[in-house]
């Protein structure tokens, strides 16, 4: 059964749980309560959090798994994301100020389409709302990174400094503001994370266009490697189309058990496309 992984102790397993409804990148307070109840009732009163937004409930007796899973499912949770299946699609926080485009909803859509889908080997999809990639989009099988093209209107700047103040201000020193001089933007350095446009109170800095970069073939763990850029600055609809195409090609080209990075390296990025 998917999402049931072996743990310690005879006859005991670990449930790997992710959220399906209402959201996939966050849990509701009610879901937390259900997880607490399930851990108390069927496990050993504790849960572990994974780097891919799953919560694991260890020490569940095998014979109680079905009952526990039913209880989870009633709360929009499911056991899943193990084996040769698409892992939970990871999305960073929709509340972060570093957001070119919040990606939680896109993750929900991708989870609906691919969450738990059978693949030649495990497949990780990670979405980042900005170029700083807390979701590790550049070391996942498929990574999506949102970017903005910003526009700066110096006339409107009130020299408040919100876009540069520590600790949150521009991380790449692409902006300069002082009490004497309105904002100066260094286009070369800007990575399009959208932070400044999100905090600017007077629309002196605005995000003119927003788009997504798509990366493929990254990896961590046994096989650390950096993903390659597949598409640059495409729309949200195009992300869905491109991911569908990558998944299709992966299924066509992969040997059983072969990870996406290996396919891309074996056939080359151009041929893969």
């Amino acid at each position: 059964m998917d999402g049931i992984i072996s743990g310690e102790g005879k006859g005991k397993v670990v449930l790997r749980v992710t959220s399906v409804e209402p959201h996939t990148a966050e849990l509701t307070s009610e879901q937390l309560r259900v997880l607490a109840r399930v851990a108390r009732k069927y496990g050993s009163r504790v849960v572990h959090t994974t780097p891919r937004q799953a919560i694991e409930v260890p020490d569940v007796p095998r014979e109680l798994v079905e009952e526990a899973v039913r209880e989870l499912e009633r709360a929009g949770l499911r056991a899943g994301a193990s084996g040769r299946l698409t892992r939970n699609v990871f999305a960073c926080s929709r509340w972060c100020l570093y957001n070119a485009v919040p990606v939680a909803e896109l993750a929900e859509e991708l989870n609906r389409r691919y969450g738990g889908a059978e693949m030649p080997a495990k497949l990780t999809i990670s979405l980042s709302g900005c170029n700083f990639s807390c979701s590790r989009s550049r070391t996942s099988d498929i990574g999506v990174i949102a970017r903005t093209k910003i526009r700066v209107d110096r006339e409107k700047c009130i020299k408040c400094g919100l876009c540069v103040n520590e600790p949150l201000g521009c991380q790449v020193d692409a902006l300069r503001v002082s009490k004497e001089e309105p904002v100066v933007w260094n286009r070369e350095r800007c990575v399009g994370c959208g932070f400044c446009s999100n905090v600017c109170p007077v629309s002196s800095i605005t995000a003119d266009e927003r788009g997504f970069d798509i990366y493929v073939g990254g990896g961590g763990g046994f096989f650390p490697r950096e993903a390659r850029l597949l598409k640059e600055f495409v729309s949200q609809e195009e992300v869905l189309e491109e991911v569908a195409r990558v998944v299709e090609r992966y299924r066509e080209l992969a040997e059983p058990g072969e990870r996406l990075f290996s396919v891309v390296e074996r056939v080359g990025l151009e041929e893969f496309e």
Binding site: E26, S29, E30, R33, A36, V47, R136
Partner: peptide, 27 residues
């Protein structure tokens, strides 16, 4: 690296009372 059931319930309670009832999981 584990949360107890009681801790999950406390987070749920605080999220409801002071936030929007949602919780994001970081890596």
């Amino acid at each position: 690296n584990m949360y107890t059931a009681e801790q999950l319930e406390r987070v749920a309670e605080v999220a409801e009372k002071y936030g929007s009832g949602k919780v994001h999981l970081s890596p």
